[in-house]
Design a protein around this nucleic acid. Structure first.
Lengths: 210, 210
DNA sequence: AGTTGCAGGTGGTCTGACCACTAAAGCGAA
DNA sequence: TTCGCTTTAGTGGTCAGACCACCTGCAACT
């Protein structure tokens, strides 16, 4: 009676996580630094070793720590990319319609062109040109073209998201444009004409081959 | 001698994770269904209960399962993304990462406005207007405004990605615009003036408050 | 029939015990 | 001294067993 549903009593390992966070902060630990041993933590935090291990497992899963048997547990240099991959893989877990996927991917590609503009000097452009002429397969052209541009866009997060979408979409739909499209983009890339890029994509809308 | 460096011997809990995946698949378990008890799993999979628990902790962290003391372990219907909270509490994202995050989020918001345009009739616009006037806190305004638009953009995948970025960014940086900005967007939304939206964002660039 | 109370099952936690592994101290031979 | 080996202490990896708190279902009682 009068049961308060389930306030879910906090678990020990969650408390350990919090205390670890404080510990790392207070001791100014940097990536590569060593954490206290599991036994020492269990003793200090007044928790069983198994609970401490459950907390460490969580951190390991998120790529925040690295454990080396016989040596100890170490703080890992954090790369946002890792967690992005983990989370993205679950976002894509649910069924996504082909249209939604392509829409998002195309949007990213369009914006990437614009972001890359300032970084595309003469050398970069000829390099890109040489790259896409290595193959005659249009799908490959597409991938090569935008992989290069996404790198030049100078946003690791965007690159990562795009690569995941690219990988995922390649398994359900081949998407590429008319060969002329890439040449036009190359020209606009040189002119840095943002509006024209926007316009070009507007025309191209719903004209993806697949 | 002849040590093969250390390919990192796989841990038991990782094997358990894999076997659980197979189990779920083979038995066609759906969200809400019950998993075998920890003791039963340990017995079946020939592993200690603590190892099984470490695997379950991982799944719990990812929001894939839910454990109810006294009842059992159940497949979860939705993901709460608790790992995001945990991650951001541990990491002070580097400035570079923070900037990238905001850049991607802003880009998505901009495109979402355009995608939502066709679906924003008179009724929808007044509804949105009423929503954002419920609060005077600018950060809340921002979230409410774009949550509504992202929904109207009619792309579940884009919505999901945005929510993820929003959740992340809200824990490391408050980002919102001048109040006037939202009013301008509302106007352009009515006019469906895509170029002006693009232009407005171009002006707003690097003017995020935080 | 309605209520109570008990028994069994479940997750949550702790302890102690091994194992495999690593690094550093110790030590003997060159 | 210096080199190379053995020893040893400490670490993570794992397991088994023991409680506890909690939930459910069922049997016994009213």
């Amino acid at each position: 009676m009068f049961k308060v549903s389930n306030p879910s009593k906090p678990k020990v390992y969650q408390g350990v996580l919090e205390e670890l966070r404080v510990y790392i902060k207070d001791n100014h630990l940097s990536p590569g630094d060593k954490l206290p041993s599991e036994r020492e933590l269990a003793d200090k935090l007044q928790a069983g070793r198994s609970s401490v291990r459950e907390a460490l497992r969580a951190l390991e899963l998120l790529g925040l720590i690295e454990t080396r048997r016989g040596e100890g547990t170490f703080l890992r240099s954090y790369q946002s990319l890792q967690s992005v991959e983990l989370l993205s893989s679950f976002i894509l877990l649910a069924d996504r319609t082909r249209d939604e996927l392509l829409q998002v991917k195309t949007m990213i590609e369009k914006e990437a062109v614009k972001l890359a503009c300032p970084n595309m000097d003469e050398v970069a452009r000829s390099k890109l040109n040489a790259s896409i002429n290595q193959t005659t397969v249009l799908e490959e052209k597409h991938t090569i073209f935008f992989t290069y541009l996404l790198e030049k866009a100078n946003n690791q997060l965007l690159l990562k998201i795009w690569m995941l979408l690219e990988e995922f979409s390649s398994s359900i739909a081949k998407a590429y444009y008319d060969e002329h499209f890439y040449n036009q983009l190359m020209e606009l890339l040189a002119k840095k004409d943002y509006d024209a890029i926007e316009e070009l994509y507007k025309q191209q809308d719903h004209q993806l081959y697949d």
